[in-house]
Design a protein around this nucleic acid. Sequence first.
RNA 1: UGCCCGGUGGUGUAAUUGGCAACACGUCUGACUCUGGAUCAGAAAAGUCCAGGUUCGAGCCCUGGCCGGGCAGCCA
Length: 552
Amino acid sequence: MPERKNFIREIINDDLRTNKFGGRVHTRFPPEPNGYLHIGHAKSICLNFGLARDYNGLCNLRFDDTNPTKEEVEYVESIERDVRWLGFDWGDRLYYASDYFEQLYEYAVQLTKKGKAYACDLSPDEIREYRGTLTEPGKDSPYRNRTVEENLDLFERMRNGEFPDGSRTLRAKIDMASPNLNMRDPVMYRILHAAHHRTGDRWCIYPMYDWAHGQCDSIERITHSICTLEFTDHRPLYDWFLAELGVYHSQQIEFARLNLTYTVMSKRKLLQLVQEGYVNGWDDARMPTISGLRRRGYTPESIRNFADRIGVARSESTSEVALLEDCLRDDLNKRALRVMAVLRPLKLVIENYPDGVVEELDAVNNPEDSSMGVRKVPISRVLYIEQDDFREHPPKKYFRLSPGAEVRLRYAYIVKCVGVVRNEKTGEITELRCTYDPETKSGSSQSGRRVKGTIHWVSALHAVDAEVRLYSRLFSVENPSGENWRDFINPDSLEVLRQCKVEQSLATAKPQDRFQFERLGYFCVDDDSREGALIFNRAVTLRDTWAKIEKS
RNA sequence: UGCCCGGUGGUGUAAUUGGCAACACGUCUGACUCUGGAUCAGAAAAGUCCAGGUUCGAGCCCUGGCCGGGCAGCCA
């Protein structure tokens, strides 16, 4: 059962102990198909499906599609794809709130017959006025005391399309003086002559979320209805509906939604980022959407692990992206193939290496997992190394190449820098001249020589060209909030490098393949990548202690 | 100045239901290393929002404050 503890599991354990739901655990993930899922939804998905998994229960996928003006099949499809990609399975339990429209309507008729619901002719503005304020009670609608017959008649005619949008609503008759605004005769149905993505034009009245949700849970026999904190105040209303209807009652449990540093999480803001062109779509690799994270190179495992590690609680909190990044590194460190790629190439010529000779060197595919084997990497006289790996005037503690210094070429030889070639006009160094020591070949007796630094490289003759996209945080502040949140967008969140040289073995890499570029980070082949036009996304850098040293 | 919900190292969670505050990330040392990766060892960092109370004993219970968040859509 539950090894990981949180308050929700404690509640479930209690319910199991008292046999509250006959030993069942049945949850659901209920997204509205009005946008793409993000990492915050992933938390909820992992929570709900995880509970079902750990307690031998079930978890439904249910679309909360009660507002046809905002919902689309495109979103339905992306949501299904994302949940599946995260590794969860709803079996044959794919539901829609719209599946229950008829049942919901009947429930509403029942309440009306009981004198607990009424047709109201107040306009939206009037309803707001009558509702009162946070500190003052509201007042009864003048239509509140219509007869049951009249209410039934009006409600049916609402359904039949006799009235224009906004002209009438069906409201619950509860208490206009309740300190809980949700109880001040909430609207149950509104008139909306809009086509619904599933029910077409069968309906012109649509249930409000508050009216639909609890009953949907009830119909599906959900035991634990887990939602976010802002619905806490709505729970009394849901309880009231269920009690008046006398139907099965799920237990609602609220938890704090995920916030992440250096990003935004609201659907509204994410939509704005897309629409205003700050990113290239919902699946832009900088987006905290599940599709964005996937494109960036995140694995389902790493996201699930993240969800586990952040835990669940009722206090509002903001997790650090560093934890998310750690989860990815942790996962990919064990699984990703190591390869060599040079992002900003600097030519290096080994003067004493015979021209025309090519040697095949052994390179390990993953030092964490010897079962992943070794591969051959070709070396020849001319190589590319990283510009960062050479300094004409090396700072202290710099272990890489500089004039006169020695460094090991990963899996190959120790080389010594014996000269540089400059661009005559700019003085910029365009080429390094080196000599190598044939005795120091990797794997050979090692000749007792040791050097402080090892750098990656790629043979010029064999290198494959590639484009690499380097991503950093989308925002430059931890908490980009307020009206001017867009001002905090990091202008350098994407850097595109087009002259990159990667090792031969990458030539046939396919979208979603992930690699560790040694000493640089984890990279994922972009969806737009093709053979001959490779594109890699940097998912996350490696921990870089040198970068830290250099900063200080 | 209504109702509801929160408050534990920098961050996120935990504390056997009242028993000397733990884990992870992050930070900083050091070891090791043909990735300045990984790994390993260690350190700093909260005395649990405040004040009272109950108790042998309170992060957990009680009272009163303080601070933060949510709620006045025919959105979800």
